[in-house]
């Protein structure tokens, strides 16, 4: 993208958001609004009829038993599920009022605005720590001055609470870090491109408890700037970090997953509306 592009796109964001909310986009993002979303793999309906509002600058947790489609749903929020051949969706996902599945929408741009952190840490093994952080930036700006690059690396690594641990070995391979450090490196890599939303797919499931604490603490810091959606199997984790929780369930294998209920996290864990939810959160199944 060249400079002219940048200006026009920013301009249109502002214009559109102003029309809808009356405020500038950079101050208050609008979060994600999912309506009537069906997700298919080929003919198989994997997730049915999701309606959900994901509040900006908060943490939304998706919980539920294995195979209920929460990861599939998460991946559909930045069109990453399209990587699997035959995957498609019906319905709309609005980011700041625009449908990410609208005609002509470029998934490449969506994924810049909605970043993702995966279950297993996946820094690029052939790149150094610094190069890993810059991986997303390099895609867009052909020339990046040394000092600008250094600034981004430091800012992102500080943002991911990793700077102090790695500042002396930025040119060493990212694969040499511990699992928890690698995962925070992946978070630094994701926030380096300054997305609006950060999707996290069981980010702590491959980590030990101490690394998990570090990542959770980081999430709580990040929510002042980013809208975070996290899939987790760990209900304590959902209770500890999230503001709102959605409970997914499935009626049986081969059946589509669906949202049972979504509410403030305290309510879901203390006084849920649905019986299935209370059974799940109290550990009676799943």
């Amino acid at each position: 993208m060249n400079d002219a592009d940048q200006t026009t796109t920013t301009g249109s964001v502002t214009r559109m958001t102003e029309q809808m909310t009356g405020v500038g986009a950079s101050e208050t993002p609008d979060g994600l609004r999912v309506s009537d979303l069906n997700i298919y793999y080929g003919d198989f309906l994997a997730v049915r009829k999701v309606d959900m509002t994901i509040e900006p600058r908060s943490i939304t947790a998706l919980i539920g038993p294995s195979g209920c489609g929460k990861s599939t749903f998460l991946r559909s929020l930045n069109r990453m599920h399209e990587v699997i051949p035959g995957a498609r969706v019906e319905g709309t996902v609005l980011l700041d009022g625009e449908d990410i599945y609208g005609p002509g929408v470029d998934p490449v741009i969506i994924r810049r605005k909605i970043g993702m952190v995966f279950q297993r840490p996946n820094p690029f093994p052939t790149m150094s720590i610094a190069e890993n952080v810059l991986a997303g930036i390099r895609l867009n700006s052909k020339r990046l001055s040394k000092s600008a690059a250094d600034d981004i690396v430091e800012k992102s690594l500080r943002g991911a609470n990793l700077w102090d641990e790695v500042k002396n070995r930025l040119d060493q391979p990212g694969s040499g870090l511990s699992g928890g450090q690698q995962q925070r490196l992946c978070i630094a890599r994701a926030i380096a491109v300054e997305p609006e939303v950060l999707l996290m797919d069981e980010p702590c499931s491959a980590l030990d408890p101490i690394s998990t604490m570090a990542v959770e603490a980081l999430m709580l810091e990040l929510k002042s700037e980013y809208t975070i959606v996290i899939v987790t199997h760990n209900m304590q984790q959902a209770a500890r970090v999230s503001d709102r929780t959605a409970f997914f369930n499935i009626d049986g294998t081969g059946q589509p997953g669906y949202v049972v209920e979504m509410d403030l996290t305290e309510k879901i864990f203390s006084n849920p509306t649905e019986k299935a939810t209370s059974d799940y959160v109290t550990g009676r199944f799943g």
């Binding site: 249109s12 470029d106 490449v108």
Partner: peptide
Amino acid sequence: MSTLATSMTSRRM
């Protein structure tokens, strides 16, 4: 109407 460039569409041939 959808020809209006938005922040998420890229210019496509």
